[in-house]
Design a protein around this nucleic acid. Structure first.
Length: 231
DNA sequence: TGGACGATCCCCT
DNA sequence: GGGGATCGTCCAT
């Protein structure tokens, strides 16, 4: 079911319980489709509907947890319902929903959302004029960003689709960075609401994007036909 | 201590 | 379709 007025839809939604996240990772990945991710940012709500997600599991060669717990991936081993944010390619953040019991290193990467509320703020976060000194190269300054402040992307495509149709784009639009690593999704900073139920007929499934090892696993889930999923 | 590389994005060809 | 940007992390010296 789709809502003509997203404001109405999220006001009637409830925050997902801890139990939701403690379930099997593949189950959580599929069920996250259609849920509303809420980011409280500077007194405003940013809300997006999750339309693409990938599961990463223990024993999975594509997972950061494949070689065991490290300082970087430690949040993956927390109990389900936390946010694991990592920094990659020297300039991007990606966000995962931690799943399963404490001690189990599994998570679901949020690859794309459909923006619903706070689109003006997302636009500014992604495409706005940065606040660093004008003489500083944008690429240099953007890498120092830690998720709380300045905007960034140097792109010519400022269409709504380009706001959140990829894991790092979504993080940039939602101002998710280092400081959000380990956030409790049952808290008030970032959380997920029980949004729309996506019927099986609209759930697409494929291999995961951008990995070498474990590429045969069909652990990517997306909402068929939604314009915001990444490819 | 060094080097390779990455769950990406962007622009150019 | 391909390469560059850019740096934290991990593993091999």
């Amino acid at each position: 079911m789709t809502f003509r007025n997203p404001q109405f839809a999220f006001s009637n939604s409830k925050k997902l319980s801890r139990a939701f996240y403690l379930r099997a990772t593949l189950r959580v990945a599929r069920d996250l489709l259609g849920k509303y991710l809420v980011r409280e940012y500077r007194g405003k709500k940013l809300i997006g509907k999750i339309v693409e997600a990938e599961a990463y599991r223990e024993g999975d060669p594509a997972s950061h947890s494949f070689r065991g717990k490290t300082k970087r991936n430690e949040v993956m081993y927390w109990k389900g319902g936390h946010l694991y944010v990592y920094f990659t390619y020297g300039m991007h953040f990606c966000a995962n929903v931690v799943t399963g019991k404490a001690g189990v290193g599994e998570a679901v990467l949020i690859r794309a959302v459909e923006p619903l509320i706070g689109i003006d703020v997302m636009m500014r976060n992604r495409f706005g004029t940065h606040q660093f000194p004008p003489e500083a190269p944008a690429r240099l300054t953007s890498s120092r960003w830690s998720g709380g402040d300045a905007p960034l992307a140097q792109t010519n495509d400022q269409s709504p689709i380009n706001l959140t149709n990829g894991p790092a784009k979504f993080c940039e639009a939602f101002a998710i960075g280092r400081e959000q690593n380990g956030a409790d999704l049952l808290g008030d900073q970032i959380y997920i609401l029980n949004g729309e139920r996506i019927p099986e007929s609209k759930v697409g499934r494929s291999t995961r994007i951008g990995i070498k090892n474990g590429r045969e696993k069909k652990w990517r889930f997306f909402v068929k036909g939604n314009p915001w999923f990444s490819r």
